[in-house]
Design a protein around this nucleic acid. Structure first.
Lengths: 168, 168
DNA sequence: ATTTATTTTCAATAAATTTTGAAAATTCAA
DNA sequence: TTGAATTTTCAAAATTTATTGAAAATAAAT
């Protein structure tokens, strides 16, 4: 298999993969392209390689920057902006976990705590099932939250860091 | 807060939550409704409570059954089919993990192994970056795969089961 | 076998999301 | 400043995805 063919396959399936994870196809494809590019590339490079419009590239690179996965770099003497992606897949993962936790899990847990304080007759099986379900999810989510925090903080802790390096 | 209001909020936000996780809104809402229903309910109950069409309910309940999260139950003397959801949130999670691993992670890892066998000059920095990226993701994914297998098998193993019960 | 209840299918429609592209805004050099 | 290069914005168009509803299929009762 030639590089060009392999690249195309990687970008395409990384894009499809992204859609299963709440990330839009193009954003994931741009991310894929940046991951396999050894040097910084420009908006025009991305437009050309993925055959997408300027506006599309602009919006999605902004999003990727918002996720902390991509950054702008300035190259002396060049007028255009260049982009690079974090290449360490461990860092990529913790960054995604961090963001999703903040955007999705934390708000959900907050809502569940509110719903648990339901006023109502606990002998009513509808009330009981509701409270039990919400409490179960909240408890589980709370544990998940803690586990994720450990992962996120791993890089900042020497002991955990060493431990987790086995997984890298 | 009254039960009806709390239910509506739970269903609505569980639906929104689902969209971030590759599950469609209605499917997640039906799942939410089943989670908080103490007794089995019918297609018509779901149609009425969520104000959606019969076809929609039918397709999404089938999907939920395909995910192993919901099952049909037959009630003696009743003509209609009834549905119930697995209520143990730990089992729900492992089931989702199991399915997503099968549907998404495993195929991705398979593709990555293929892409790693790229023929090309390793002194070419483009080739090098591509191979390094793919290898990094595959290695990380492989570890994730193992961790998930441990979780999935936890319920079948006494030792691990006892250990993980602390998280329940 | 016929009727009635219920479930399933799927083409048509609606809704949501993504993409485009051109105009406006910004940045930088002369 | 002025003008050229570049980036950003956003309404309109295209595409994708989800939903409807009525007809077909299936299952159960008479």
């Amino acid at each position: 298999m030639k590089l060009s063919e392999a690249k195309a396959q990687f970008i395409s399936s990384w894009g499809a993969f992204g859609t299963h994870w709440g990330i839009n196809r193009t954003m994931a494809q741009i991310h894929a392209l940046l991951l396999i590019s050894p040097d910084p590339i420009t908006q025009d490079d991305i437009m050309e390689q993925l055959s997408i419009s300027r506006g599309n590239v602009n919006m999605n690179t902004r999003d990727l920057i918002g996720w902390g996965l991509v950054e702008r770099v300035l190259i002396p003497g060049e007028r255009k902006e260049f982009f690079i992606a974090e290449k360490d897949i461990w860092k990529v993962s913790t960054q995604i976990i961090k963001e999703r936790k903040k955007r999705e899990l934390d708000p959900m847990l907050k809502l569940l705590s509110q719903l648990e304080q339901l006023e109502g007759d606990k002998k009513d099986k509808n009330v009981k099932q509701f409270v039990d379900t919400v409490a179960g999810i909240r408890k589980f989510g709370g544990q998940a939250d803690k586990v994720l925090d450990v992962m996120i903080k791993a890089d900042e802790s020497w002991v955990l860091g060493s431990l987790l390096k086995f997984f890298k």
